[in-house]
Amino acid sequence: MRITCPLCGPRDRREFYYYGSEDYLTQPALGDFDAIDAHLHLRDNLAGEVRDLWYHEMGCAAWLLVTRNTVTHKISDVVQVAGGGVGILAKMKPEEGAL
């Protein structure tokens, strides 16, 4: 398996660390325990395209969002997580947040 890192180019899978679903890019609100549980533990088991988080650990240290088909194994898109994180940050802040 190979992943084309947007910075380093095509690389062997061994250079990457797999984290999990793109769901980790969002954070449920403090105190919404059902949402937190779902966020942490509930995943669709899709036969088809999924978007997963990979880390180019042995390369440039970029976190990547990889669109991959679980049936054909075709990787159709790889983008950096950084830069897409703008909207996500807002979700991190609790109402009374003092970051």
Partner: peptide, 18 residues
């Protein structure tokens, strides 16, 4: 050590744009 580095990179890249 490696785990924390990976975690910090994730937090920075995913949640700390700008």
């Amino acid at each position: 050590a490696g785990l924390v580095m990976r975690h910090l990179e994730f937090v920075a890249q995913a949640y700390c744009a700008g």
